[in-house]
Design a protein around this nucleic acid. Structure first.
Lengths: 188, 188
DNA sequence: GGGTTGGCAATACGACTGCAATGCCATGAA
DNA sequence: TTCATGGCATTGCAGTCGTATTGCCAACCC
């Protein structure tokens, strides 16, 4: 067995290229050849690591999700032990909102994938699991009934608006804080 | 000058077909030939009314926006004169959320266009105007500072979740009502 | 050091794309 | 009736797509 490489590394390398293409030119510009060119490899190699385009897409989607989770975990870790629910929520949500160029790109790609899965429900499962998990998690932190779902919805919407350039990140955070005020003053 | 037809009617007819294709199979399945087939006309005719594909897309986007505005206007009209701000907001927002199959399709297409314009800022202008107008309008109705932006963001997020199938429309409306409770009890 | 095998490149193929060019045909003006 | 013209259909073209196939090449085992 000759030439050993790390397939996982190759795959994420390719997926990274995919995400750059998707963030800059949209998901519909994602083709084997474009991704290969962006990754600086041959189209044949892309095919070697992803037997089909859909396989590549699903993998890339997973990478986006994972990077998001890492961002959240890191932000939460910086918060120390036993943080207040409100501070925790703010940290989690502001870690999810598009902050720098990387997370902005990820958000764009995520949006594109959302539209993608809105029509291919079979590819939506991993997204679905994430969202439901998130809802349950936030529900344990929000003191107002029905408030968790609303807060998450608002988060998504704020993300949309930030991507679209309607709000800056600062404005979005102000709106978020105002809403947290509402939630945590109406509580006990 | 022979055979007079109504070009506007033809164009909206084609745009309708475009939207059916996009709602069922995604925006990337929108091609001149598919749209033509769906509309039951020849591909040449589509080309005759839209010199380029982008022209067709932009037109279709406008149709989606317009249909949304009509839905809102109708719902508001049914409300009678001088409605309470809260009732007005609830009516407007629940008219925007995906309700029946038509508005659900429109929402899917809108989502796809959002991803589309996230990468083609030049096509986003009409969307942008709509959003900003909406923000200003809602600001006149919400008694809490920063509450309008949050409410709209929440609306967008709820729309996403309903499209994605995470929430039913009823659940989304419950969440909306809970949030309106918060807003209008915290106010004066 | 020959043979085997994993890693990758190159090519070919059929389907599909957006778009331009061309042609037919019915109509209304002359 | 003739003919110019707007409305539309057809066809062709150059390019890109995803995928299957094939072949080369370097590396390891024996």
């Amino acid at each position: 067995m000759p030439k050993k490489v790390d397939p996982q590394e190759r795959r994420t390398r390719i997926a990274d290229a995919l995400m750059r293409v998707a963030a800059e030119r949209g998901l519909e510009a994602v083709s084997l050849r474009h991704v290969a060119a962006e990754a600086g490899v041959s189209a044949g190699m892309v095919q070697h690591y992803f037997r089909t385009k859909d396989e590549m897409m699903v993998f890339a989607l997973d990478v986006v999700r994972e990077r998001g989770q890492v961002r959240v975990s890191r932000a939460v870790a910086e918060l120390g032990e036993n943080p207040e629910p409100r501070a925790l929520l703010r940290t989690v949500i502001s870690a999810i909102l598009p902050r720098d160029e990387e997370s902005r790109g990820d958000a764009k790609v995520g949006l594109a994938f959302l539209a993608y899965t809105a029509v291919r429900p079979e590819a939506a499962e991993s997204l679905r699991k994430d969202v439901e998990e998130m809802i349950r998690y936030v529900q344990t932190l929000v003191p107002v009934p029905g408030g968790a779902e609303g807060l998450l919805a608002m988060m998504e919407g704020l993300g949309l608006y930030v991507i679209g350039g309607y709000y800056s990140l600062d404005q979005a955070l102000k709106v978020l804080d105002a809403h947290l005020d509402l939630l945590f003053n109406a509580g006990p």
